[in-house]
Write a protein that binds this DNA or RNA. Structure first.
Lengths: 201, 201
DNA sequence: CTCGTCATGTAAAGCGTTACATGATTTC
DNA sequence: GAAATCATGTAACGCTTTACATGACGAG
């Protein structure tokens, strides 16, 4: 089994397996249909679509206003997408910058961290509301592949609800940890840790 | 407020704020202390550490066996990390390939998708067990900044538990969706969707 | 007729992965 | 003594972002 490389190609293929569209529309569909599980700039999308036509995975089915090109997936494209799903291992390397930042909150005092928590919670509440507002329109449409979108949207909602709950719990825990410790200066804390390391080696 | 660029630098700075270490050790600490919220190859880490020494954010505090270099964060480094936390907006662009793949399961039949669900659930159960096994050792150590690692580790555990639960629910939902629909061939499904799009335009 | 949105692309710079190269030290 | 792990780095390639460039169409 090969590694999951070139995921952008398969993201586009998957969106086109749902329904045909232009490059411009595909970019927007990442945020809605894939709920940000993938994302790309137009400068990546257009060249990739051209390469996929060359490879016979998609075809240009019509031209519209403003020189727009609508692409549809081909049989070969569906086969290739299914092969990728079944035969390749997903690339699980994950990077989540805003989560990483939380690991470093031990350097902040209560006031500083409170403000960052507020920002974080606000952002996730907004995302949660957005996801919830998509639920009904998709359910109404009752299109086969959108039933699956609805299932995955459910994960987005569970995730955001769980994360908000955890953020609220965490802020209180962080406060407790800071209180039960004498040191107030971040530098004193870092220096103590450096001394510990020096003793250990 | 600038965008959250060059996050690798701050990830390294944050780890070194916890305790000093070599480039080689830092790479391993991503998986454990940051629970994969960030990650980098050594080919990225070594040059970045050299740049950070030049910029005065860290310093080489000792040399050990095999030419190893142990780095520690400087006061300027702590200031820069705290500034980054407080003054910059996190980059929230997220890519999660294995979640993206789930969006495309409407193309698979029950047997095909069952196997992929098994693989996915197995992976997340393993991750969950790994996280759980870290809880006690960290709690025992009772080092200030590790109290925060413990708090964020709690998110990892909640996340994996929630995701596994959702995966189990999802497999059943996907089966229901497939059953309530006549079509069996994926190509028939994609073609029907292409016809819908053609009518709409 | 103006503003927002639709629409397609190229170029350059920065970030991240894979492959390669080398060798010391520890553990069994 | 062999194998695993520790340890540092460079080079080439591929992926992603930012900046730039251009223009048509629709709504008000």
């Amino acid at each position: 089994m090969s590694k999951g490389q070139g995921a952008l190609r398969y993201a586009l293929l998957g969106l086109l397996a749902g329904s045909p569209g232009t490059g411009y529309a595909l970019k927007k569909r990442f945020a809605i249909e894939l709920a940000d599980a993938w994302y790309a700039e137009t400068s990546q999308i257009y060249p990739e679509l051209a390469r996929m036509v060359e490879d016979g995975l998609i075809s240009e089915i019509s031209r519209g206003a403003r020189g727009s090109k609508t692409y549809a997936i081909t049989d070969a494209g569906i086969d290739e997408l299914v092969r990728w799903l079944k035969e390749t291992e997903p690339n699980r390397a994950s990077r989540n910058e805003s989560l990483m930042r939380l690991f470093f909150f031990f350097l902040l005092d209560d006031d500083e961290s409170a403000e960052l928590f507020r920002r974080e919670i606000r952002h996730h509440r907004e995302t949660l509301e957005r996801y919830k507002s998509w639920k009904e329109p998709i359910a109404k449409a009752n299109v086969y592949h959108e039933r699956f979108n609805l299932i995955v949207l459910d994960w987005g909602i569970r995730y955001e609800e769980g994360f908000i709950e955890w953020l609220e719990w965490t802020e209180a825990e962080a406060k407790k940890a800071r209180k039960s410790r004498g040191l107030s200066s971040r530098k004193a804390s870092a220096e103590a840790s450096a001394r510990r390391a020096a003793r250990a080696s």
